[in-house]
């Protein structure tokens, strides 16, 4: 589904990713772990197509297509979803309006017809209930005044509404207490399916207790320095990044 080869990325003239290679099959959940500044968030932004993140070398093939050549919103319509570490506030735009606009934009791009207001409302309500997102939250301006947990729940709600093929979760656990973390993780697990791939980016092993990955990659200084099964997370937790990164170097 996703095939990244020798990816080099610069941000503001500085090289952050230095030859990253990674491959994910449908139905799989991969985790990217790594210390601060290793390039984890850069990877997520490059996949989503944020401007200012320049690919200088290498390839990203997504379902047989060159992802680099696609506009940000086209990637979204084709099923790339990024749950952001810091979801953005947009004052004056209600969450419901935003969800409807985004959903119908994606549908239009795919040649599907718009869902009418009632259709969107039904869909959102049903999904919101599962994630404990209140009606009141949907009426508030997007992410404005939301707590950390509310913001993350809303990201997962969007994921369940848009039903992406490739979901990238960037530090979804950051800033969450244990109850909020469990709720978010349950939401994510409910979305695991044979057609969907997930890339879970995290600094800590904690999240991986709840979202158990098929494979773990350790990212350091812009490269994958170690790979393994879910047990690698425990090793990292026990010995620290320094040990693994040092070994690889």
């Amino acid at each position: 589904m996703l095939d990244i080869k020798n990816l080099h990325v610069t941000v503001g003239g500085k090289e952050i990713l230095k030859g990253l290679t990674l491959s994910i099959q449908p139905g799989q959940v991969h985790a990217i772990m790594g210390p601060n500044g290793s390039g984890k968030s850069t990877l997520s932004f490059v996949l989503a197509g944020r401007s200012g993140y320049d690919v200088t070398e290498g390839s990203i093939i997504y379902n047989g297509e060159d992802l680099k050549a696609m506009a940000t919103e086209d990637r979204a319509a084709k099923g790339v979803f990024l749950a952001m570490q810091y979801p953005v506030e947009i004052p004056g735009v209600t969450t419901m309006t935003f969800l409807k606009t985004a959903l119908n934009s994606q549908r239009r791009k795919r040649g599907e017809s718009d869902l009418d207001a009632i259709g969107v409302l039904k869909l959102v309500r049903a999904k919101a209930k599962e994630l404990n997102v209140s009606e009141e939250m949907l009426k508030r301006a997007l992410n404005v005044g939301f707590s950390g947990g509310e913001k993350k729940r809303l990201e997962i709600l969007q994921m369940s509404i848009f039903e992406p093929k490739l979901a990238i979760l960037d530090e979804t656990d950051s800033g969450l207490d244990i109850d909020a973390l469990r709720l978010v993780a349950e939401g994510v697990n409910a979305l695991r399916s044979p057609e969907r791939a997930m890339l879970v980016i995290t600094h800590y092993q904690r999240l991986l207790d709840y979202i158990v990955p098929d494979r773990i990659h350790v990212l350091a200084k812009g490269r994958i320095v170690a790979e393994g099964g879910k047990e690698l997370a425990l090793e990292l937790e026990a010995k620290g990044y320094e040990h693994i990164v040092g070994q690889a170097a």
């Binding site: 919103e73 979204a76 979803f81 810091y86 947009i90 004052p91 735009v93 985004a102 934009s105 848009f162």
Partner: peptide
């Protein structure tokens, strides 16, 4: 980051600008 967030959720640029500005004017 507001624009990127909208684009990432599939909303085309002009529509994203319109959405954000309408929010500003609400």
């Amino acid at each position: 980051d507001q624009l990127f967030y909208c684009l990432q959720r599939g909303i085309p640029q002009d529509e994203a600008v319109s959405l954000i500005v309408n929010g500003f004017c609400k």
